Computed example of a mutant assay.
Amino acid sequence: MDMPMPQQTAHDYSLDLLEGGALPLSRYAGQPVLLVNTASKCGFTPQYEELQAVWSHYRGRGLVVIGTPCNDFGRQEPGSAEEIQAFCARNYGVSFPMAAKLHVSGPEAHPLYRWLAQQGGVLSKPRWNFYKYLIGRDGRLQTWFTSVTKPMNHRVRTAIDRAILSE
């Protein structure tokens, strides 16, 4: 008889970093994480500025912001790793961790994004760039927000505050 597998958490996944190397999410066990699929040529691209503000404001309280560039929607992230990194630094002063470009939807979706969609339900699957996923200290999905909800929105900040205060 097969033993049931323990439920996975975000800490079971790893991303490749934009500048090379691996970013195991287990590194952030005990810290809340705001994960965002990003793109450089999107109407929502100015949200990078607010993501950087969220990172700057909450970093000292333990929050980690991670950008995951993807080219899945409207081919709005066509650049190389170097181009993406330069764009983010030059235009928005991005200093939070950025993953290497990956897929967030469809059959090639990164396993982390497949897990997020499973945890959040069918509506949580990214349908465009700048979907935001708040992962709690325990590695479980706390909540998610669509592209139209800006990172400094009251609902996002309230959820982050709750995730930071939870033990």
Rank of each mutant, 00 (worst) to 15 (best):
C88Q: 11
Q118D: 14
V54N: 02
S80L: 04
G62H: 10
E108C: 10
E108G: 04
C42K: 05
V54Q: 01
T38F: 05
W128D: 05
F87Y: 13
S124Y: 07
G136M: 05
P78N: 12
V36P: 03
A29Y: 03
N129S: 10
S26Q: 12
K101V: 11
H57T: 15
F87W: 06
S80Y: 03
P126G: 09
Q118M: 12
K101M: 07
Q31K: 14
H110E: 06
L116Y: 04
Q118F: 12
R140L: 14
Q118H: 14
G120D: 01
E77V: 13
G74K: 02
Q85V: 09
T45Y: 07
R90V: 13
V54P: 01
A86G: 10
L34F: 06
R27H: 12
S56N: 15
Y28E: 02
T68R: 02
R75W: 12
A109L: 03
L116C: 00
Y58S: 07
Q119S: 12
L102H: 08
Y131I: 09
R140N: 12
M98P: 01
A117C: 09
A81E: 13
G136S: 10
T38W: 03
K101R: 13
H110G: 08
E77K: 10
L35A: 08
W128N: 04
H57L: 15
Q76K: 10
V33Y: 03
V94N: 00
R61Q: 15
H110V: 11
Q119A: 15
G79W: 00
E50Q: 15
A86I: 11
L134H: 03
R27G: 05
P69K: 07
Y92T: 03
W115C: 09
W55D: 13
V65T: 08
H103Y: 12
H57D: 13
R59Q: 15
I135R: 01
L35E: 06
H57K: 15
N71W: 04
N91Q: 15
P107K: 15
L112V: 11
I66R: 00
G121Q: 07
G106R: 08
H110A: 07
V64Y: 01
F44H: 04
R140H: 14
S105M: 14
P46K: 09
R75Q: 14
I135D: 03
G139C: 01
V104W: 00
S124K: 09
A99V: 05
N37W: 00
A117M: 00
L51R: 02
G30R: 10
A89N: 07
Q76L: 10
H57Q: 15
A29K: 12
Y113Q: 01
I84A: 06
P46M: 11
L34R: 02
C42F: 07
V65D: 03
N71Q: 02
A53I: 05
C70A: 14
G106C: 07
L102E: 14
G30S: 09
G60P: 05
